[in-house]
């Protein structure tokens, strides 16, 4: 089974966000970036598990500039066989989806896996877009996946429950927590990753996509209102009269 895993780069959760020029851009100096956890912990590891079980190959695709190579090498160290970097800024989910689908069309893949969302924009749209561009079936929020003959059986997280579904291949799947167990790259993996192929390709042109106008920071909370531990009547009064939530 040949699997393409799309990974994205996100700021570390602990990153402090500051703006440049009154909101024209995010100040990335001093920010540390990581591989999006849903892509790394669940999508990539599940792909590697399937490859170990069924043979074939796991290829990483990433849309980004050369400063992304560190996280791509990490993906190779975890166990992917090779990687393709589309050399462009990931301008919008629409742009990224067009790049990923172009890579799928230029190769031969049975399964496209990606995280259920990136932890920066939480958009959750790229998977659906890739599926539509390729006319593939799409199963989102999968937390369990196994082969059953030629079909693939998945559990999909829905509000307050689980939907069990079945699809043929090729298929696009977005991965939720539980799909696989996080793997930490070992020394051998890190050494091998250095010599694994990382191909850099030019982007395909895309004529539309949402455009960023500006950024702003949210207004800070006014500060916590402390209530004495022996006066819970006061807390209840505030919840009712001041914040009107009960």
């Amino acid at each position: 089974m040949n699997i393409l895993v799309a990974i994205s780069k996100t700021p570390d959760t602990t990153a402090k966000i500051t703006l440049n020029n009154g909101g024209n851009s995010i100040d990335e100096s001093g920010m540390s970036f990581i591989m999006n956890p849903y892509d790394e912990w669940y999508a990539l590891v599940k792909a590697i598990e399937l490859q170990e079980q069924l043979g074939g190959k796991v290829t990483i695709v990433h849309v980004g500039l050369s400063d992304s190579d560190t996280i791509i090498r990490k993906g190779l160290a975890i166990g992917a066989q090779d990687a393709i970097r589309v050399n462009a800024n990931p301008e919008s989910s629409n742009f990224v989806a067009h790049q990923i689908s172009a890579i799928v069309e230029s190769g031969s893949y049975d399964l496209v896996l990606l995280g259920k969302e990136s932890i920066d924009y939480n958009g959750s749209t790229v998977g659906a877009m890739v599926a539509e561009l390729l006319d593939f079936p799409y199963v989102s929020y999968a937390n369990h996946l196994e082969m059953e003959g030629d079909n693939i059986v998945l559990n999909r997280e829905i509000e307050g429950g689980i939907e069990k579904c079945k699809s043929s291949l090729p298929l696009v799947v977005s991965a939720a927590k539980g799909l696989a167990e996080q793997r930490i790259p070992n020394m051998r993996g890190i050494m091998m990753a250095k010599s694994k192929p990382l191909q850099v390709v030019d982007p395909v042109s895309v004529s539309y996509g949402a455009q960023t106008v500006r950024y702003e920071l949210p207004t800070e909370k006014s500060g916590v209102h402390l209530i004495p531990a022996d006066d819970m009547k006061e807390l209840v009064r505030l919840l009712h009269e001041e914040s009107k939530v009960i």
Binding site: S93, S124, T125, V126, E132, E159, Y208, A210
Partner: peptide, 23 residues
């Protein structure tokens, strides 16, 4: 912006060649 809505938004946006924002 539910699991269903988010699974459809991207597909519909591509079909209509439309700019989109989720959430």
């Amino acid at each position: 912006d539910s699991t269903t809505g988010k699974s459809l938004l991207g597909r519909v946006a591509i079909r209509l060649k439309a700019d989109s924002v989720s959430g």
